[in-house]
Design a protein around this nucleic acid. Structure first.
Length: 423
RNA sequence: GUGGCUGUAGCUCAGCUGGUUAGAGCGCUAGUCUGUGGCACUAGAGGUCGCGGGUUCAAAUCCCGUUAGCCACCCCA
């Protein structure tokens, strides 16, 4: 009996030609990150569960119900990383990358795992590219990161994106606002949905982005966090807005923007695409000034972001997939007969070594078929070698655009093709 | 985790109220064109009708379950 297997729920294969798009995105992102002074760091895909509980927050949905947590053979509780920041911060501390008073800029890319119900733009294994600037409290670092995102999206030619920002305060002022909020919600508890009545107690900030109509009405009358920020948070929020304006980055202040990870402080941002469904955030991030210390490192402020590869490639596919998913070869060898295959294999090997993209038909197909393969492979040149050519010691070289064909001696073929400068 | 929609050839889908050998377009292979691509015509290959059960003389079609995908909620990148 044969068994057929499928990829597990919420995971998928990235096949050609889509992978061309991914490679393009990764390459563009990495180049731009390096231009901004970030260095790559690769951390393990699983960590001690406690790392995520501690950094993301015990009361968050991610930790509560979305983590792939398992016990290894020694009974240690491990978790597949649901996001990148915690691991990067842990690694930076552990490897003494954080020198007091210095700035450390790191980027990462790779798969993350969350047990959620799959949907468009939401997978259980999904890929993120992200970066962290650790060691600076300058709001220009926040701006730098938002600017990176804006520039990245413009560089890959993505339109229809919008930047949203908000300030979620700091340990000084957030507790105060939280209390005000809780009090307000308690007074209006009868108008809240069941979920929000639960949130009200545990994480009242989350009521802010509830979509239920009655909750929204309550929310619209709710005290805004801006009015409860401490002086330094308020200044910081002002400074960033001014800086963004100065840099011509258009943004919207969304006073309901709350992030689902507890470690954020002060300014958080989200970049959304108009061309996606409900899962429309393509990149997001913010400042997390307390996390490094929280994880046993020096008391260092930090700011970072992550972008979702699936979502970005999804939008890009709609907007300009054709050009980016194209593949081609420089030279295609159409071969007829055993001897032609034997003679040509060396040529092909030689040409490939010199950096040309070469493909050949080694499968005894009709010439018509081979020509079609060459055409579909978008070959620039096709080299035809059959029994007659072998006998005469030549090859037919056909220019696929002009349809011009000329005879080249087999001895001269490789050097002739190399000199054409097809690259 | 909740609700709705869907699952028929490699791909996109049609198959009405259950009735003989399950269809189309695209793609693929071949021929027209004795060894030359992109067009056209012709022919051919290719299907456990998601899976399991039930109703029935008879199920791709009706019912139940299950699984996967999509959409929304939730959450987030």
């Amino acid at each position: 009996m044969f068994m057929k297997f499928n990829s597990v729920r919420g995971t998928k294969d990235i096949c050609p030609p889509e992978i061309e798009l991914w490679q393009y995105l990764e390459k563009t992102a990495v180049e731009l990150l390096q231009d901004y002074g970030f260095s790559e760091i690769r951390t393990p895909i699983f960590e001690e569960s406690g790392l995520f509980n501690r950094s993301i927050g015990e009361d968050t949905d991610i930790v509560e119900k979305e983590m792939y947590t398992f016990a290894d053979k020694k009974g240690r509780s491990l978790t597949l990383r649901p996001e990148g920041t915690a691991g990067v911060v842990r690694a930076a501390i552990e490897n003494n990358l954080l020198a007091q008073g210095n700035l450390t800029k790191l980027y990462y890319l790779g798969p993350m795992f969350r047990y959620e119900r799959p949907q468009a733009g939401r997978y259980r294994q999904f890929y993120q590219i992200g970066a962290e600037s650790i060691g600076s409290s300058s709001y220009w670092r926040d701006v730098e990161i938002i600017l990176w995102c804006v520039e990245f999206f413009s560089r890959i030619g993505l339109s229809g994106i919008k930047v949203y920002i908000n300030s979620v305060g700091c340990p000084e002022c957030r507790p105060g606002y939280r209390e005000v909020l809780q009090k307000f919600l308690q007074e209006n508890t009868t108008q809240l949905c069941a979920d929000c009545q639960r949130r009200m107690v545990r994480n009242p900030l989350r009521v802010l982005d509830c979509k239920v109509e009655t909750c929204r009405q309550v929310v619209s009358r709710m005290p805004a966090i801006q009015n409860y920020l401490c002086q330094s948070c308020r200044d910081n929020f002002q400074d960033i807005q001014q800086a963004l304006q100065k840099e011509n980055i258009t943004f919207t202040v969304d006073k309901f923007l709350v992030r689902g990870l507890d470690y954020y402080t002060q300014v958080v941002f989200e970049i959304k695409s108009e061309n996606l469904g409900a899962q429309d955030a393509v990149a997001a991030g913010g400042r997390y000034d307390k996390l490094v210390k929280e994880l046993g490192g020096p008391d260092m402020p930090a700011v970072g972001f992550a972008l979702g590869m699936e979502r970005v490639s999804e939008v890009l596919k709609k907007q300009r997939a054709g050009a980016l998913m194209e593949t081609w070869v420089d030279i295609y060898f159409a071969l007829l007969g055993k001897q032609a295959q034997q003679e040509s294999f060396n040529f092909i090997r030689d040409l490939r070594q010199s950096g040309l993209k070469v493909e050949a038909c080694l499968e005894d197909k009709s010439l018509k078929n081979q020509m079609r393969q060459a055409d579909q492979g978008k070959a620039k040149l096709t080299v035809i070698i059959g029994e007659e050519e072998i006998r005469k010691g030549i090859a037919m070289v056909r220019d696929m655009q002009t349809k011009e064909q000329k005879e080249i001696k087999l001895n001269d073929l490789v050097s002739f093709l190399k000199e054409l400068k097809l690259k």
